[in-house]
Design a protein around this nucleic acid. Sequence first.
DNA 1: GGTAATTGACTTGTCTGACAAATGATGCTG
DNA 2: CAGCATCATTTGTCAGACAAGTCAATTACC
Lengths: 235, 235
Amino acid sequence: MPDRVPSPLRLHMSLARDLGIAILSGHHLPGDNLGGEVERSGTLGVSRTAYREAIRILVAKGLVESKPKAGTHVTPRKRWNLLDADVLDWMFSGTPGEQFIHDLFELRGVIEPAAAAFAAERHTTGHLETMDQALAGMREFGLSNAEGQKADQNFHTAILDAAGNEALASLASSIGAAVRWTTRFKLNHSPLPRDPLIEHEALRDAIATRDPAFASATMRELLTLALNDMAIVLG
Amino acid sequence: MPDRVPSPLRLHMSLARDLGIAILSGHHLPGDNLGGEVERSGTLGVSRTAYREAIRILVAKGLVESKPKAGTHVTPRKRWNLLDADVLDWMFSGTPGEQFIHDLFELRGVIEPAAAAFAAERHTTGHLETMDQALAGMREFGLSNAEGQKADQNFHTAILDAAGNEALASLASSIGAAVRWTTRFKLNHSPLPRDPLIEHEALRDAIATRDPAFASATMRELLTLALNDMAIVLG
DNA sequence: GGTAATTGACTTGTCTGACAAATGATGCTG
DNA sequence: CAGCATCATTTGTCAGACAAGTCAATTACC
């Protein structure tokens, strides 16, 4: 299977991405008017149709709202779906604010230990297998390349999955973004990043023993270490 | 200010809503093909433009995906943004599955105690005022009408807000949906629902004392009682 | 003179019809 | 039988028009 390169983004998605990034990066502030559809689509050199579809996407993600005569305005930050997969992607395409990184990790600290506890109670052999495959991937490729990073992400997703809670599982993409950011950030700032494989294996075993409190504590440990690594680099 | 009635949904949003509900209610299963754009927009009696904008919204929320020649397919459930405000609205416009309700409350059980702890540490007087206003609303109107239910929701949102974490705050709409459902459900099934005002006031005071552990425990208590109420009604 | 209803102009919303681009399926070729 | 070229179908994009909505100025009326 020749690694299907993801088909280039459609125009409307590409537009939504560009506008989304412009908003998330602070280039357009909440309350700002993006200008009329005809005017804006004109300067962008695209049809009003494509531009409107892009706006519909942004509206769906809570970044803007548009009313007749009033135009398209950036919504207050509180209304943004910050945990949406695309929004996080757009956020991390640049350099997100330090505060937001902190918040996202704090969310991890809330979600993942709880998920680990549930996973300890409810996991099936299938979930363990997925986790083991992910660990094997991390072991084989290391975290310095895309394959290994994907494996890391798969490991954390598998735990959310094993927790047997759809609402929690919906946060997998958000957590995944944080996971990706961690490795990317550490690789950029630290020449020899500590290999977190041991803690991951310990976590897997903790879940396998079906001891919720133990699994939760082990997850907390893993997150603490990950956070320490970043704190050290940040100074 | 004469209570602006929310302008009727635009056609594309209305279409997205209808299709979204059809998907969430299981009328269209994951993998199902929604049919071609021309065909479908024809039977719905709308233009392809409006139909396409509706599809863009559903794509943005992860419910469907469309590729040339392949058509528009419902995505696997795992890809759905179940915590999106609109998706939850659509979900609760019908009768959501019992398992999902359970999952959502379990998520509340993870998020809200943690948020209460953070709120105890970080809240400002402004947050306390908002909470007090919400409590006043609950006291004045009761939970049997829209005003009071809104106040209840505002109270919980204020706590997520006071936690000083944007990522957590993004879950406000999801939590809010669960809160709305609780009261609606209890009112429908129990003639004299227990008034949860006392616990809310206790929670407010717990947060005001700036004792994270205490605030967290009080929140857990409130949630336990709410869950018990529902369990009793469910039998 | 001030307030409320009316009109007007501008912007988003919707429709129509056409062409471009992508892709799954078909059938050909080695 | 595998791989490749072709084709037909469907989504993607474009252009232009009209409908519906909303804000603002203007007018009418008290």
